[in-house]
Design a protein around this nucleic acid. Structure first.
Lengths: 228, 228
DNA sequence: CTTGCTTGGCTACTACCTATAGCTAAAACT
DNA sequence: AGTTTTAGCTATAGGTAGTAGCCAAGCAAG
């Protein structure tokens, strides 16, 4: 029992010879990941809210009730995917911001671009993350945690832009961050809802993302004193 | 047969003594509306994608199979609600734009405000209209038609603003209209996904709507020649 | 090597869902 | 008044989530 509990977070954290004895729990974690992969595929085919555990079981080659040895409910599968998605998205955006050519407003643009590309490449997860699409499902705090880290990251980027004199200090306030989040959400939602199948940047909405940093700057122009 | 077909669009179009003889089809249309009302209530309670026709039947006091005398499938119920919602939204926005104090950019703001308020007051319908939340459901062209009219309406408003010298002519192009639609979608999606239950304008995102016209103007500043 | 515990599969079952087929009685039209 | 239409019904097929309980294989300690 204790062993399996310890394995729920299931990261390849220790690269060494493994705490020994838990070949079983490693296998268990692998199966969990396999289930999540299949669930993701099925959600892409049938719609996010149309996920059927029975279909997952069929594709995995086991009987439906056996799935409950790995996840206590359908919502638990959604939650695991939600967390996985948030972590991937956070890492994508964080790395993009870190290797941006220069900090400030340009880095915000880099982060937006990377985030938008990830979303278009992971639309199923994006729907789960950014819309309330599954009846009665709400993410657990643990699964939602990475989203808060993303907000912190954006806050830092905005602060840097403010210090460079590219934005008014108010941009780093709550309303500013909410506006920033809304700006990126707009094209993304339009693209997901109306043109889910267009490839990369051929759609009508994703190209708009490149213009968002300037729009944000227009909403929070630096005070003349700070600029220059 | 012919009579009932004619009643499927079921608007109170003719206010007079009614084409006579179709007390039956009027009753039928009433029941259809009743079903849609109940479905809307249930979607609010259980989630948009969680609508169950059996539950509708229970609440209506009939057996589930009898519902199929009024709608051929669950998707047909969604489609009727989709159309109803698009028409309501279109009418709301159109009327708001028509009685705006002055045309141009200000009228766009008035239309946005009215649209946002309608959405917050009709969140269930809004989810159906603006997100792809129901697996395998896509609106029929007939149900989608009002959405095209809304785009035409916005196009007209933007053209008027351009002629008043408030916007660059490019604002009325496809990319401009897509940006405009994305701008309003952003706060709306954020509000629906993250704060669905806050009343009117107490939320974090809806107040941002008032700033969108200026943002749009910043994206398409008028050429100096046209201005003034 | 054997004994015993853990676990990952299974079948059987409940209670729900959408949708179809076909019946019947009441309502409406002619 | 007779005929047609229709709005309800029951029965049924086939799908879903989730629970209960059985059993055999895997693993670990004596």
């Amino acid at each position: 029992m204790k062993a399996s509990e310890a394995a729920t977070s299931a990261g390849p954290a220790t690269a060494g010879p493994v705490p020994v004895g838990d070949r079983r729990s490693r296998r268990r974690a692998e199966t969990r990941e396999e289930i999540l992969d299949i669930a993701l595929d099925l959600m892409a085919e049938e719609g996010v809210a149309g996920l059927s555990l029975a279909a997952v079981a069929r594709r995995l080659g086991i009987r439906p009730p056996s799935l409950y040895k790995y996840f206590p409910s359908r919502h638990a599968v959604y939650d695991a995917l939600f967390q996985r998605g948030q972590e991937q998205y956070r890492d994508t955006v964080t790395k993009a911001a870190a290797r941006a050519p220069e900090p400030g407003l340009a880095a915000i643009g880099t982060a937006f671009d990377a985030g938008a590309r990830w979303i278009m490449g992971n639309q199923t997860l994006a729907q789960l993350l950014f819309w309330r699409t599954v009846p009665k499902y709400a993410p657990t705090p643990q699964a939602y945690a990475p989203a808060l880290q993303i907000r912190d990251l954006m806050h830092g980027l905005v602060l840097a832009a403010v210090e460079r004199g590219e934005l008014h200090p108010d941009a780093a306030g709550p309303a500013g961050l909410d506006l920033l989040a809304s700006l990126i959400t707009g094209p993304v939602s339009q693209q997901l809802a109306n043109e889910p199948d267009v490839p990369f940047e051929e759609g009508r909405y994703m190209p708009l993302v490149a213009r968002l940093p300037d729009l944000f700057a227009a909403a929070y122009p630096p005070t003349d004193a700070a600029a220059r």
